[in-house]
Design a protein around this nucleic acid. Structure first.
Lengths: 193, 193
DNA sequence: TATCTCATGTAAGTGGTTACATGATTGC
DNA sequence: GCAATCATGTAACCACTTACATGAGATA
């Protein structure tokens, strides 16, 4: 039931086609959701059948025709009641599992994995900082509607998260270095060939 | 392919039954993974068929019989190659979507949602801090094997994450308060009944 | 007597990914 | 001429959840 509500949320802001929504998963929504176009088309049809959105077919001359969807009152009230309660966030972290698995193969394996992960988070952080720069340039903080403020807040959430991961990785790398430092002194010297 | 690797990771530490593994999702693994026993039993059988784990049937007198699984060499090398590469973490956050949806219904709705979420994270933080206390009491930092150190690191990751969420929520609540403050001054006074 | 833990499962359903497909138009 | 963008889908599959089921022994 999740993507359904993501779609409703997108349509709450303004009517859009399946294509538009699918695309926004690579742009404005990328900080908090991703989905494939196939899934979007499938689910938005289901929403139409249930009467939560309604479709308007728009014929175009120099492009394929498209179907614009907008929230119905039913859709809006569904969204309203969905929004009322927070839920326990999932914590399934493939990375943390990998780290523990890596530990079974020694400090070097764990260290490499942490370093790789660091580059991933560093890249994301750089991207988010870039976007923040652009926002700052164009934002007129005073008269911004709430939704805009919250959109910026989601970006801030992303920034914070990435920074925090990087800090934790550095902390963990240092821990491993300490272990390795003492371990190396005890390790057998390499055998001459 | 994820839970399969989580199971292999669990078995890399020591052989266990499906029941043991299922239970550890509520205990040692709870910081980074959760899964239902049905899924565990299903997947561990698949792993056995593929030869990544092997089963030993253990008859018990005063308890139901059980099946203990252990990693095979094939399983261990599968785990080793899985561990080699980091992956882009998923960011699908139901909460952030809800926050944006909530914003469409006004500051009060958004504020309530943020507050609810804060309680959830505060509760988790408290739990993690508790566990950290226990660990500190029993840990002998010197001679701990790498896997133990990394297990503590995953807890630290949880602690950090919860703290960071709480800070961000407070920041966002303050932002909303500011908006609301100015908005209230501009808002029409309540009509006398 | 009732509930909890041990130990294992089947069946149905939901949510998401991957592979494959079509066909026109715009820009290099 | 070739890739990218616009616009929409089908089919198969993988991952996970929910509901339901069994049956013995331990604990209150």
């Amino acid at each position: 039931m999740s993507l359904r509500h993501v779609i409703l949320t997108a349509l709450a802001e303004s009517p859009a086609s399946g294509y538009d929504i699918a695309k926004s998963f690579e742009q404005t929504m990328r900080f908090y959701w991703s989905a494939k176009h196939q899934q979007v088309y499938r689910d938005i049809k289901a929403l139409a059948v249930e009467g939560l959105v309604e479709a308007v077919h728009v014929a175009q001359t120099h492009r394929p025709d498209k179907v614009i969807y907008r929230l119905t009152d039913k859709g809006r009230s569904e969204l309203r009641s969905w929004v009322a309660t927070a839920v326990e966030p999932r914590i399934n972290s493939e990375f943390l599992v990998k780290l523990l698995a890596a530990s079974a193969f020694g400090t070097l394996v764990a260290r490499d994995l942490l370093r790789q992960q660091r580059t991933i988070h560093a890249a994301r952080l750089a991207l988010y900082q870039d976007i923040e720069q652009n926002l700052r340039a164009h934002a007129n903080t005073v008269a911004m509607p709430l939704a805009e403020h919250m959109r910026v807040a989601t970006l801030r959430r992303g920034l914070r998260g990435e920074k925090d991961w990087i800090d934790w990785i550095d902390e963990s790398l240092k821990l491993i270095a300490d272990i390795d430092g003492t371990a190396c002194q005890l390790a057998p010297l390499p055998q001459p060939a």
